[in-house]
Nucleic acid binder design. Sequence first.
DNA 1: CCGGCCAAGTTGGCCAGCCAACTTTCGGCG
DNA 2: CGCCGAAAGTTGGCTGGCCAACTTGGCCGG
Lengths: 255, 255
Amino acid sequence: MPADPDRTAGALYRTVAADLRESITTGRFGEAGRLPAEGALAEQYGVSRGTVRQALALLRADGLVTSRRGTRRVVLGTARVQSFSELLSFTHWARSMGEEPGGRLESMVRRPADPAECELLRLEPGTEVYVMLRLRTLSGTPVMVERTVYPPRVGEIVAELPADAVSHTEPLREHGILFTDADHTIDVVAANTEDARLLGCRRGSPLLREKRRTTDPTGTPVEWSQDRYLPGTVAFSIHNSLASSALSRHARDGD
Amino acid sequence: MPADPDRTAGALYRTVAADLRESITTGRFGEAGRLPAEGALAEQYGVSRGTVRQALALLRADGLVTSRRGTRRVVLGTARVQSFSELLSFTHWARSMGEEPGGRLESMVRRPADPAECELLRLEPGTEVYVMLRLRTLSGTPVMVERTVYPPRVGEIVAELPADAVSHTEPLREHGILFTDADHTIDVVAANTEDARLLGCRRGSPLLREKRRTTDPTGTPVEWSQDRYLPGTVAFSIHNSLASSALSRHARDGD
DNA sequence: CCGGCCAAGTTGGCCAGCCAACTTTCGGCG
DNA sequence: CGCCGAAAGTTGGCTGGCCAACTTGGCCGG
């Protein structure tokens, strides 16, 4: 699967968006320059203005351009937003940076879900889930501990994978398990004994935690994961704007 | 300014979106139920299908509903996405949680910008900037240290505010300084001596850091800020999907 | 009873057009 | 020279329509 989803689909507006994105990042419109008018772009690409507007909406959501009534769009930044899969898949992300991803399976157990897990994965109480613990490495050095809970349908497939499989999301996709929507929560926790042992840090030392709940196109949860990163190895980056915002700030209230 | 931007604008699609959002969060369509068809909604609200689609695009971006070709939309979650201003303004955010925000100005100095600041705020080398250091509190207890660099146009206004002003963004808005787009980067840092003194923690103890660069509608940077939160006081939450994604994961490479 | 095919329902995508709101520019006038 | 107003340019918003792609459920035949 190509890295850029804009290029994959046959949708016209994604093609236009991809082309504009490249023009922007290569500086064709200048550092803080202005884009051609919607009408001009429509004529240039041979599409309707509505299609151009769809393409520009993608760029605006990524924080590449501003847009307000009355003036041409202005280049905001020469973007770095990766594709959705680079965010979900550690493997994909690592490779896009030119690093060699690795994973060591520590444990994989099957047990009844606790009430909280049932709620998150939307399962009947007592359903069996698959709980995985993996140490993830970049070019051999440990950077992250991954604790993932899978519902049966997904866990059955993951359990069959070889223990040294680097990527789990890719085989899952081939089995028809699709990841399309994810909710992330990011905060700080202290390393517990297990974290410390696996990551080679001291117990109590700070880790960047990403909690993630992923669903498939039907809205069915397919994954509930807690990833704990060593400081200095990763940072999360988000763009938001008045036009549309998916980021929020929460008070923490336990796990 | 009302909390919900959907309600403020006269735009039809925002009104529809706000109404649908409420219907979803009050569970009118069920926990994981299905929405009425676009056509049905169009008739119900007396608008065209295109307008309904615009409204639904907002909900999809917020992670409230899925959408795929062939089936009705499905409720994903009963959302918690706040308005854009609740993310940018500590004051607004605190009040929406029922907490009493406070701020103590530690220092406000004017000095030439260093090269990195010039780059970020897009200023000529050597331009004078205003550097602010503030301790932010929730109901009296310190939770965050805020270090903000303002370009002259903005800094001049902030410098005139009383030292005990709780909110800075609100007065700025009244002076015509608008915050519309922001890039956030989230990671972990160790508290330095100053952080430790202000927050009452130990030097070297972990803090959740949010770096933020905010621009106005013209794309001109108006703020560059580093906020450092005590662990356990805040968490950041993001939704992303295959359809559109503004979140990304980065390798850290210094500040 | 099971499986496959077909039709209805639904969303994705694209087009053409219209008007309103807003910004910028430019020229005229004081 | 500077201010103000008009006009041109541009994006936001909304309508109505059309077809394609896809999902679902039911019908029919084996």
